[in-house]
């Protein structure tokens, strides 16, 4: 209950530390959660554990992978899972486990970089639109409205089909088409902070707009940014895999979960494992990101805590 009565202090940790001298007991309940409390949240713990494992697999791919992911042994094509090939082999006789391990590296990095672009663009535009209001808000919001009215997937297949799909280009396209939702979420959060007393206090103290945005608004919306970022990676992974299905994602033979899963569509009735396993990896990873994002949202948003 005490948290509900002191919302502005929990929303702006920067102010707490610099201007107000809280007692120790008070600080323990501050909005900056301890690692222990974060990991005490089951969703965060599970999500983080799965993702750390996935990232480790991606990092250690050269050492973990039992075979060359691109070695084609045509005599071994379409073999079901066995001790030699735990996840079977694909239509060119390549070891699916090895390809899946390497694909982890590529799928995770593509989605991570694309998310960083998305979240940077989204945060900057969201902060500006929400805080400055007026014409700036109008222009940015109409732009997001327009982009959100596009079926993003059709837009992406159009762009990729026309401009090509190198790895770098693909990351850029994914990054620059997915920001409107992030911008909107962040703008809404900024709007809710904008008229709080601590913002007025900073302004009265003579802080510039840039300073207010950086030191007072940004910390307040940081949790929303973190949560949005986590959930956006999940979306980007799904979009990339969807593009791969149409041969518009990362181009083979470079393995990604998406293009591996789609390669198997021709052998669905004879070799189920080609499509199944990479898809399971996508589901697990996206699920983990969503769990993490959900858990973080519950822990970082003071209004949601204590439920």
């Amino acid at each position: 209950m005490t948290q509900a009565t002191a919302p502005s202090s929990t929303m702006a940790p920067a102010v707490n530390r610099t201007r107000v001298n809280w007692g120790d007991a008070q600080r323990k309940r501050s909005a900056i959660p301890t690692w222990r409390r974060l990991l005490g949240n089951r969703r965060i713990a599970i999500g983080a554990a799965v993702l750390i494992t996935m990232y480790l697999i991606g990092l250690l791919a050269p050492w973990l992978s039992p075979a060359d992911p691109n070695a084609q042994i045509l005599l071994n094509r379409l073999r079901p899972p066995s001790t030699a090939h735990p996840l079977g082999t694909d239509s060119l006789g390549r070891d699916i486990l090895s390809r899946a391990i390497w694909a982890t590296r590529i799928s995770l990095s593509v989605s991570l970089v694309a998310m960083l672009i998305t979240i940077c663009v989204g945060s900057i535009l969201g902060l500006l639109a929400g805080f400055l209001g007026g014409a700036v808000d109008m222009v940015i919001m109409r732009l997001t409205d327009m982009l959100m009215a596009f079926p993003i997937f059709i837009l992406l297949i159009t762009i990729v089909a026309i401009y090509g799909s190198g790895l770098g280009l693909l990351i850029l396209f994914l990054g620059f088409t997915a920001w409107p939702l992030a911008a909107r979420t962040i703008r809404a959060e900024v709007l809710s902070l904008k008229h709080r007393d601590f913002i007025d206090a900073a302004r009265i103290n003579g802080a510039s707009t840039a300073r207010i945005l950086w030191f007072h608004v940004l910390p307040g919306v940081l949790s929303v940014i973190v949560v949005t970022a986590t959930l956006r990676v999940a979306t980007v992974i799904l979009i990339e895999s969807g593009l791969s299905y149409f041969g518009l994602g990362v181009t083979p033979p470079t393995p990604t979960w998406g293009n591996m899963a789609s390669e198997g569509r021709l052998y669905l009735d004879t070799a189920w494992w080609i499509t199944t396993f990479p898809g399971v990896l996508i589901v697990i990873t996206v699920l983990a990101y969503n769990l993490l994002g959900d858990g973080l949202r519950d822990e970082l948003d003071p209004r949601r805590r204590g439920r």
Binding site: A234, L238, S241, G242, Y245, G258, A261, S262, G264, R265, L268, D269, W272, T275, T276, G279, I282, V283, I284, T285, V286, L287, N290
Partner: peptide, 16 residues
Amino acid sequence: FGFAVPTFWLALMLIL
């Protein structure tokens, strides 16, 4: 799970 499953993959699995 509904969030995490790629559309095309779910389609292929259901067909399977």
